[in-house]
Design a protein around this nucleic acid. Structure first.
Length: 266
DNA sequence: ATGACGGATCTAATCCGA
């Protein structure tokens, strides 16, 4: 049976609950993973999701910044969060969901952006980002026999065609060699498959984020692929489709990220 | 690199995003 999962950096779930509801109505995913919810757990709009048939959630938020959530039609179990750099940030949550093909663990990440200067000596935010992705190397695509799907805003565009200009972004945080190589090491260490690039060839430009600062995001089209869907190899064999919902960047009061939709036959 | 937006917060001015 088809299992649809969507990941979306929503940039404030309370402000944009209207377009989240639109996405759920139009796409009817089994699971929705959100990043940058920007609210404490008590302020999370649970009722809006329940009304649309999403009675189950795993929410890990804080005041004003970061925050991640897994929303599901069916029950979630083994919910937990890991604080990768022990800084008290709400950047990860995981849970297990039952599918017709058995249990699947979902990891939902919001990796630190890393600030402006790509130098860990003078920029503590970049240092934090590098340490965070170093910590992710311990994560395997299969844990306790349960295959995993890893999604989220990883804030790194690893391939040349994941940015509008490889050459011009080599020294820009999100596309520097230490970051892109670091993310590749995380993938290799955990035996993860990049589902988006399995489905859409690396020769094609592919973006999930367009800056708010451009006068016309669509015309300038200076995007980056910062949002990702990874899975264990056994799940990647059952991948049916991957779609980047670019139109959502043009919705009313949009997030600067768009939803990424993956369908597996489980 | 460019261009100068948009969110949350002690609702003003600042920090943060990437």
């Amino acid at each position: 049976m088809a299992f649809k999962i969507i990941t979306w950096n929503i940039n404030s779930v309370r402000l944009r609950i209207g377009i989240v509801e639109r996405l759920l109505k139009e796409q009817q995913p089994d699971v929705l993973c959100l990043q940058e919810t920007k609210c404490v757990n008590d302020a999370f709009p649970r009722k809006s999701f329940e009304k649309l048939g999403y009675a189950h959630n795993a929410v890990h938020g804080q005041k004003g910044y970061h925050g991640v959530a897994i929303i599901s039609k069916s029950p979630l179990s083994q919910t937990s969060s890991t604080d990768f750099c022990n800084m008290g940030d709400t950047r990860h949550i995981e849970a297990v969901v039952e599918t017709p093909g058995g249990p699947v663990r979902i990891h939902n990440f919001y990796v630190p952006a890393g600030g402006d200067e790509p130098d860990p000596i003078i920029n503590s935010k970049f240092d934090h980002k590098l340490k965070f992705i170093d910590g992710m190397k311990a994560l395997s695509g299969v844990q306790d026999g349960v295959p995993n799907i890893l999604v989220g805003d990883l804030n790194i565009a690893p391939l040349e065609n994941d940015v509008w200009s490889h050459k011009q972004l080599l020294k820009i945080v999100s596309h520097t060699p230490v970051e892109t190589q670091g993310l590749t090491m995380v993938m290799n260490a955990g035996d993860w498959v990049d589902c988006m690039r399995q489905h859409i060839p690396p020769s094609e430009k592919l973006y999930t984020w367009w800056s708010y600062r451009a006068r016309d995001w669509e015309a300038s089209n200076r995007g980056r692929r910062l949002d990702h869907v990874w899975s264990a190899p056994q799940l990647a064999q059952q991948l049916v489709s991957v779609d980047v919902l670019k139109e959502a960047r043009g919705w009313e009061k949009p997030s600067d990220h768009v939803p990424v939709i993956a369908v597996f036959d489980l």
